[in-house]
Design a protein around this nucleic acid. Structure first.
Length: 400
DNA sequence: CCTCCACAGGAACTGATGGCGT
DNA sequence: ACGCCATCAGTTCCTGTGGAGG
């Protein structure tokens, strides 16, 4: 009966919210106790222990699927170590970097350098040879007698970059200690890919894999525990219905045991419930949240594509379930109507496989005998979402 | 049983960009 | 002012291939 706007304003004013602490509902929040990960915490601590004694600790390799708490554990252990060390006034420098955020080898090294305290002048973002950047990093460590710990997340990604450029930075990093007159350098590699080691240079494995820790996947039961604990701290009492909790755990845990997804799901469901003035988070909210997360992801990645990729996606949409050749001709006509130069077929094939990787389209190789070999692509998202995501693009407006 | 289609997808290269050291 | 270095989007050239149709 009351106006919905009024109701929302009232609620906001009264300040009542079923979520009392949002921060806890982000996966990056580090809880006091990391459930089910005690032995892993001990192992990590064990291998990094020598830092405290000012001797060089072992390099460390941490494996585990996404959402198994690898990064959380490593970060927690390191921050504890740092706490201790700060009191003793012994220079230790923690450096965390995610290879996926840095698209290039150069970028990664620069990001490491920045955290070591090198500024723009000492370490420019471009223009230098990689070996030069590397030298400056080592100099910094030597000059200030730092005990640096490089945490490199998604190191498998970095390994790919290294292969591509032919620079064996990983090897140099793991062996950097031999070149250092003062200070030390410890590497902690974190990888999602359990088979990643096989792709590495054996010399790197021998020095990086001095210690190895594998994080197993969570099962649904464990995820439920994790969620319960976070709910206790972040929601007001009894705000999350039991079935909703179960569904969260099941949706995220069923396949990969991904706690990160579970927590995201819970947060979004909570926000939805809150927005709807509901006093409890129920099963519907979770379903809705799951769908919303999915759609947001799709829309965001659609929007982020450059023009030609968008044209390709539209071509697929216009000729759904078609072969590369058909997509390409469609693409060419689209290019003509918007007045852009068309790219080569080779480039389009490449774009198609890149787009396929993101999951927006799916492709299937088909052998048609005398009619050759082709790959048929079709959309995995609805064309509405595509239209919606592309509608602000001026050049595309008339073809949609 | 062989042929030959219609592409897949690797490799090497180009040209532009941007910024370094000397 | 000059050469150098890394990176990116794109091009050129290439070799490879499962099976329908002869």
């Amino acid at each position: 009966m009351s106006d919905p706007i009024d109701r929302m304003l009232d609620a906001a004013e009264s300040g009542k919210s079923i979520i009392k602490n949002r921060e806890i509902l982000h996966f990056t929040y580090i809880p006091n106790t990391i459930l089910h990960r005690n032995s892993e915490q001990e192992q990590v601590t064990q291998s990094l222990l020598p830092i405290l004694k000012q001797s060089r600790p072992s390099n460390l390799l941490v494996y585990g699927k996404p959402g198994t708490g690898k990064t959380l554990v490593v970060k927690k252990v390191l921050s504890k170590i740092q706490e201790r060390v700060e009191k003793s006034n012994f220079p230790i420098k923690l450096v965390y970097s995610n290879s996926k955020n840095e698209t290039t080898l150069y970028g990664l090294l620069v990001s490491l350098g920045r955290q070591l305290g090198l500024n723009e002048k000492e370490l420019p973002t471009t223009g230098l040879a990689i070996s030069e950047v590397f030298k400056r990093l080592l100099n910094k460590i030597t000059n200030e007698k730092l005990n640096a710990v490089f945490v490199i997340d998604e190191i498998d990604y970095l390994a790919q970059l290294v292969v591509k450029t032919g620079k064996d930075i990983l090897y140099q990093l793991t062996r950097a200690n031999e070149q250092l007159d003062a200070g030390s350098l410890t590497m902690v590699g974190i990888s999602n890919d359990l088979t990643f080691k096989e792709k590495l240079d054996p010399r790197v494995i021998s020095s990086l894999g001095e210690e190895e820790i594998v994080f197993t996947n969570y099962n649904v039961e464990q995820i439920k525990k994790i969620l319960e604990e976070r709910i206790n701290e972040s929601f007001i009492e009894d705000a999350v219905e039991e079935p909703a909790l179960n569904l969260c755990a099941a949706l995220a845990g069923g396949e990969h045991g991904d706690a990160r997804r579970a927590i995201d799901l819970l947060r979004v469901a909570g926000e939805l419930a809150e927005r709807q003035q509901s006093e409890k988070v129920n099963i519907e909210h979770v379903r809705e949240a799951s769908q919303k997360i999915e759609e947001n992801k799709e829309e965001a990645s659609l929007k982020s594509y450059p023009l030609h990729e968008k044209l390709v996606i539209l071509s697929i949409m216009k000729a759904n379930g078609s072969s590369t050749g058909e997509i390409y001709t469609q693409y060419k006509t689209l290019c003509k109507t918007v007045g852009k130069d068309e790219l080569t077929q080779r480039r389009i094939t490449q774009m198609l496989s890149e787009i396929e990787l993101s999951g927006i389209i799916s492709g299937r190789l088909i052998h048609q005998g005398i009619h050759g070999r082709t790959k048929k692509y079709k959309l995995t998202v609805s064309s509405e979402i595509i239209k919606k995501s592309f509608k602000d693009e001026l050049t595309l407006q008339d073809i949609i």
